[in-house]
């Protein structure tokens, strides 16, 4: 087995009734790299994310993380193993503060339950853990440049800030693999530049990044390797240059010549 592959999909297939949304996809993502998954709308990109994070169970095929099978495990178990994600349609806890949102990310790295909560004000163990949660959450917020908004409600942030908060929350779970579902959607060019820098910084921290994105400039600049999906099948994979020249990719995006 290739030990450098952090995530491996083997012949992953999922059917919803008669629709095969993902069809026999193989993929290997090396440690410390940035991998992009692109393709037209409805190609099955988010579905692959949902399979990797355990929201869907594949009809066939296997998902390996760190060489360990994680196919069909529940999402919270997969998160604890070290895979975190953001969502295409932002899913923040709107009526919680920015800081509390990130604290939720620390949930799977802490342990105090309801009995310790009741003794919380007198229990040094609970106080210590709560302090650690707060410190680590602030670290994640500082990385995403949101620390000064920590007491605001998540729903009151701007769109770009909300996207960054989702990343901060995911980072707080201490993942080794970070899945970003259209992180740059709805951002202006300036915000995209900042985000790109932040993603590079996250990569430098030793994380592996797997992202879905429609902004081609963003993808081509950032990714080490790209996989292209069309109608649930992987039609191409390679470096950004290779993918850009691939005739199948051009056909999938622009359509084929009639004759």
């Amino acid at each position: 087995m290739d030990m450098s592959a952090l995530l491996e999909l083997q012949n992953v297939t999922i059917r919803f009734g008669g629709l095969t949304a993902v069809d026999g996809v193989d993929m290997k993502i090396d440690r410390g790299t940035i991998r992009a998954l692109i393709g037209p709308n409805g190609a099955g990109k988010s579905t692959i994310f949902n399979i990797v994070t355990g929201i869907y169970s594949p009809t066939a095929g296997r998902v390996l993380f760190n060489g360990q099978e994680i196919t069909g495990l529940p999402p919270h178990v997969i998160t604890k193993k070290g895979i975190a994600r953001t969502f295409q349609n932002i899913r923040l806890f709107g009526k919680m503060t920015v800081l509390d949102n990130v604290k939720i990310g620390q949930h799977c790295r802490s342990s105090c339950d309801f009995l310790s909560a009741v003794t919380g004000f007198f229990n040094p163990k609970v106080k210590k853990e709560e302090k650690e949660i707060e410190e680590r959450s602030l670290e994640a917020l500082e990385l995403m440049e949101l620390a000064d908004k920590r007491y605001e409600y998540a729903q009151s942030l701007s769109y770009g800030e909300q996207r960054r908060l989702e990343i901060a929350r995911a980072l707080a779970t201490k993942p080794s693999l970070l899945l970003l579902d259209e992180p740059a959607a709805g951002m202006n060019p300036q915000e995209k530049q900042t985000l790109m820098k932040m993603i590079r910084k996250i990569q430098d921290m030793g994380l592996t990044i797997f992202l879905v994105e429609h902004d081609m400039k963003f993808v081509m600049n950032l990714s080490d390797r790209i996989a292209v999906l069309d109608y649930g099948r992987k039609i191409a994979a390679g470096s950004p240059e290779e993918v850009q020249k691939n005739p199948d990719v051009i056909a999938a995006y622009l359509g084929k010549d009639v004759d």
Binding site: P75, F87, R91, F93, M96, H107, C108, R109, R169, A170
Partner: peptide, 14 residues
């Protein structure tokens, strides 16, 4: 509270 606000995100956060 996280479960109330968004159960799918809560589960994805562990």
């Amino acid at each position: 509270v996280a479960i109330r606000e968004d159960d799918i995100a809560a589960e994805a956060m562990g």
